[in-house]
Every structure is written in C-alpha cells, then in structure tokens.
C-alpha cells in the first residue's frame, strides 16, 4: 500500500518524515556497526531481491490481490536493522524512480513498509522462537507468524496515519475494520511465503538466516518436507483462526452504524463546520481533530492484535510444555 501525495495531510506527512528519518538513521548506525563494509553491496542485492518479490502478485480472495511486503522476511534473514535499511531503500527508490508512493508521503511509507514490518516481524519472530522448541521447523513457523503479524501491523500503521491526518474523514472504525480484515487475509499469504522462503534458505545455506544463528539447529533433525509442511499448517491454522476471531467477527457482528454515529457526533460534525482550520496543520493536534473515540478504536485494535498474539504464544508454550513432558516421560 504505497500512500500517494495528498492522502494524508502535510503536517502528519512531515512528522512521519522526521520520524522515519530518525528510525532509518538509527538503523543505519546500528546496522553498519554490526555488519561492516561488506553489507553495502549485500544490502543492495537483497533490496533488488525484495523489489523483485514485490512484483509478484498473489490472488487473495474475490478479485483482490496482494503482493509481498518482505519486511519480516528481510528481518528474519538479515536481522532487524538491515531489514529496515533494505526495505526503506526499496520504498525510496519506488517513490523517486517509479513514482510509486508520493514523495511527500515518503516518511509514512517508510514507517509502514520498512520500520513497522521489520521491527514487528523481528519482534514476533523472536517471541515465537522463545516459546517454541529450538528446531528448524520452529524457525519456519515463527517466520510464518512474523510475516502475518507484520502485514497487519503495517495496515494498522496506515489506519493510524489516516486517523491523524487523513482526507475525507471516513469513519475510523470502518477503515480499521476494512484494512485489518483484508490484511489479515493478505498476511496469510505473506506469512506462508516468508516461511517457505526461510525454509528453502535454511535447507541450503542455514548460515544465511540471521534469525536462526542464535539457535543450535544442528542438533535438531534435518528439515524434511513433511516437517516443514506440518509446521506451516499448524502456523497457518492458528493464524486463520485468530484472524477470524479478531478481525472478521467483531466487524461482522457488532454494529458499524454505532461506530459511525459516534464518529459523527464526536469528531466530524465540528470539523465539517470549520473546514478551513481543519485543513491547517494545527487542527490535527487539536482535541477536536483526534477525538477520543477514534483513538480508542485504534488502541482497541492494537491491543486486540497484541492480545491475540499473546494468546497464540501462550498456546504454543502450553503445547510445548505438554509435549516436552510427554517426551521426558517416555524417554529413558
């Protein structure tokens, strides 16, 4: 989702630009400290690889298609800092050379597609690895989860930007529902592809998977297609179940009119009357611009995702304990 110019107002775009520059600068400093001069050509090659992958579209449902973002993938393969750098360079090149994504929205796009996907992807990966057994199949499963979550958080980033400075005042609840709903599906594709790519690399050059370097996978059995498939299906099943519960159910069952009416009463009636100041930068920082309800909705969404993820992690941890107890009982 490359945001064009004018979609988000100038002040928010500019603020996002500052934030993105700071984040990217930090990633560059951290990345170059850890990775040395060899990494410049490497980062360029991996950026070309991510760009090529993003050109592959996969059908999601009902005529919509998604393409890979690649942030979680890059983070698992290269580490979070290089992941951020690589994705940001991809976004910058797309804006300047291919007019894909507005140049004034560059900061927003870097945050959504570079910073958020790599950081969240990496965080989710590490968290899942912390509770999963340290096996090759777990690395693949964790990559699936990381890919899925990174897409949803990226779409949440879009919703937050829209809430802060979006044009047209579409009810945030509706935007949130539509975005996260669609992206929880797109995320499945992202997760699966991330997982299979990580599995393929693990099979040939496990040393290239940064995320797996910490774990002594030598001890685990070699990755067989059957085991990857199982890991993939378990992760996918979890992801689908969780998506349905969190994103589809509430928006299908609850009363969207209610959300709209709240938004109408609280936020937009005021801005509609005074639209000149609404467009001025200060309006966005005013109380009326960001109504409590909208923030509440987003916070609820974010908390929802985190909760779901925590529940998933807890389930995994529980099954693991059960399994290890089972193996210790049966063992000598």
């Amino acid at each position: 989702m490359h945001i064009p110019d004018g979609f988000i107002n100038g002040a928010t775009s500019l603020g996002a630009g500052v934030l993105a520059a700071g984040g990217l600068g930090a990633a560059l400093r951290q990345g170059s400290r850890a990775l040395k001069d060899r990494q410049i050509p490497l980062a360029g090659l991996v950026a070309a690889f991510v760009f090529a992958l993003q050109m592959l579209n996969f059908p999601v449902a009902a005529g919509t298609s998604g393409h890979l973002l690649g942030g979680a993938l890059a983070a698992v393969l290269l580490g979070p800092w290089m992941g951020i750098v690589v994705l940001s360079v991809v976004v910058i090149v797309q804006a300047l050379l291919f007019a894909d994504g507005g140049v004034s929205a560059l900061g927003l796009n870097i945050i959504n597609m570079g910073l958020l996907t790599a950081i969240v992807g990496w965080g989710a990966f590490r968290l899942l690895m912390a509770v999963l057994p340290k096996r090759t199949a777990s690395v693949v499963g964790a990559a699936v989860g990381a890919g899925w979550l990174s897409v949803i958080v990226s779409s949440l980033g879009f919703v937050v930007a829209y809430a802060l400075g979006g044009s047209g005042q579409a009810p945030i609840g509706t935007v949130l529902g539509a975005m996260t709903g669609v992206h929880s599906l797109i995320g499945i594709g992202e997760g699966l592809i991330t997982g299979v790519i990580v599995a393929a690399v693990l099979g040939v050059r496990p040393d290239l998977v940064y995320g797996a370097q910490k774990y002594d996978l030598e001890k685990s059995r070699r990755l067989t297609p059957g085991r990857t498939a199982t890991a993939g299906f378990v992760a996918l099943g979890l992801v689908v179940a969780v998506s349905l519960v969190v994103f589809v159910a509430p928006f299908a069952d609850s009363n969207p009119d209610g959300l709209e009416r709240v938004a109408e009463n609280q936020g937009f009636a005021a801005t509609a009357e005074d639209s000149v100041t609404a467009e001025s930068p200060l309006a966005d920082y005013g109380v009326s611009g960001v109504s409590d309800e909208r923030v509440g909705t987003i916070v609820a969404g974010v908390i929802g995702v985190i909760l779901v993820f925590a529940v998933g992690v807890a389930i995994l941890a529980a099954t693991r304990r059960k399994r290890s107890r089972a193996t210790s009982n049966s063992g000598p």
Binding site: L42, F49, L192, V196, I197, V201
Partner: peptide, 25 residues
Amino acid sequence: RWIWQGRALATSAGSLFIRSYERGE
C-alpha cells in the same frame, strides 16, 4: 497460479535469495 501452489514459487524465491546474497558477497 494460486496461493496453495505458491510453494514451488516460494522455494525458487528461496534460491533466488541465496543467489542474490552470494552475488552480493
């Protein structure tokens, strides 16, 4: 063509990554 056939595609994407990485080296 479809996502459930994506495995082969993603596997070749995996080797594409390795090739890209090795070329970087």
